[in-house]
Design a protein around this nucleic acid. Structure first.
Lengths: 251, 251
DNA sequence: CCGATCCTTCGCTATCGGTCGAAGCGTTCT
DNA sequence: AGAACGCTTCGACCGATAGCGAAGGATCGG
């Protein structure tokens, strides 16, 4: 591929208004579903699907299948920087101030704070746990498959988490894309064991008619002590700012 | 104009293969004529004209009329940086190594070294003089109109240049786009007076059947002494690398 | 002053690509 | 198991636009 062809390809990808809308909607780094992006770009689902396929094919986006949803995100920080340069290429032009993007999420605030995702914890609490574990070097989240490090092994053992490590010493941990936070949380054996541990010790409690989890005062203290996590039950954003497109909670 | 509209506009401008070719041909910072750009982009003159108009309208290029030619160049270093980012957005992709661009110029090497442009000096010598004067703070070249500073005034007086400053103390100096070097040299009263001065003192000599100027040994020494200019008559580039499209020398 | 050159505008054609409706496939919820 | 949902593919439509030939305006060379 020659240089000019390459340049034209990049330009053409960003040059379509619908694709530009999609890219801008993803510029906050979060992942979004195809339907939601179709709504944000004011376009039908088939059209959005075609555009998303082109953007993935061109290397600007990556897609992650999650149940019946497909989450799209900017492929790399480099892509984000390129778009930023294109946006502000000649300094401040017109009224191109970055308008705050609406944030999508379940209507139920309690579910956004913490909920079960099949057999593990999702929501802000789940993401916070994943962040803490990753930051401490207890887990390494690679593409599609995570790994529990030796320090993570020790950490969970001292916490009293039952890892049930009879079978398959490899796939202990799996990253799971969080629906409301649009970031990865811990699934797999580690996620399952952690969830059971939290429930058993009364750190979180199931709620009626919902997958939402209530964080108990005991849990507040425990998460702070063991993971360095502050309160997760405060909604940092008013409800009015949520997106109109609200797919049903899946993860 | 909203942000996504703006982003899409930039992308669409760069997204066309012909426009991408034009932009890449101008990425060395030199100015080129419409015909030459049409040739480099492998497209007809009307098509190139339309694309150039769009690029100018979009703020990516600027145009300077020079006789019956129109010289186009990248509008600002910011634009150049943006294109570079787009070219290498994901590190090294494919074989996108910047291939050396052909360099256009008059067929006559002597004219590329030094020639008269109406009443002043053009070619490598003219550009070198302009660079030296500008670097020393003797002239300030603004957009379309240059100005001789007080130090430049003194410099020319001590050199013995007759500025003929009876009329209009303002437009002493005019930047003139050099045809072969594609950069500005000094025109206007300053350029004219300098040219006459060089001819009178035998620093350069007119040649038969051509506007080319021959730099005499005396001139070599003088330009080195007063302007810090090394030899201008050595062609730094083999003749084979010149562009096929060779407009007749005008300036 | 006339021919040549450069650039643009006008008019036209053909092609590319964005858009949507309908249908198909896989997944999830009841 | 059946229904609902999310996403993609297919087929068709159509508007936008790149491309060129011809003509016009402007400038330069002789």
């Amino acid at each position: 591929m020659s240089a000019q062809t390459h340049l034209a390809q990049i330009g053409a990808l960003v040059g379509d208004p619908t694709r530009a809308n999609i890219l801008l909607a993803l510029m906050d780094g979060q992942a979004r579903t195809a339907k939601e992006l179709a709504f944000l770009a004011r376009v039908g689902a088939p059209t959005a699907s075609a555009h998303l396929a082109k953007l993935v094919d061109g290397g600007l986006l990556t897609a992650v299948a999650q149940g019946r949803h497909r989450y799209y995100r900017i492929a790399s920080p480099d892509i984000g920087r390129m778009i930023e340069v294109m946006l502000g290429f000649a300094g401040t032009i017109a009224g191109s101030a970055a308008r705050p993007l609406r944030r999508a999420g379940p209507a139920d605030e309690r579910m956004r704070a913490a909920r079960t995702c099949y057999d593990h914890i999702a929501g802000r609490l789940g993401v916070a746990i994943a962040d803490a574990m990753q930051g401490a070097g207890h887990v390494v989240l690679e593409d599609g498959a995570g790994r529990l490090t030796s320090s993570g092994h020790v950490f969970l053992l001292r916490l009293g988490v039952d890892l049930d490590e009879g079978r398959s010493g490899r796939i202990l941990c799996r990253p799971c894309l969080d629906w409301s936070e649009r970031r990865f949380h811990l699934a797999g054996q580690v996620g399952k064991a952690l969830c059971n541990h939290c429930l058993r010790l009364g750190w979180v409690e199931r709620t009626r008619d919902s997958r939402a989890l209530a964080i108990t005062p005991t849990g507040q203290a425990a998460f702070q002590t063991f993971f360095g996590i502050a309160a997760c039950d405060a909604d940092p954003q008013p409800a009015e700012h949520r997106a109109e497109a609200t797919p049903s909670p899946v993860t």
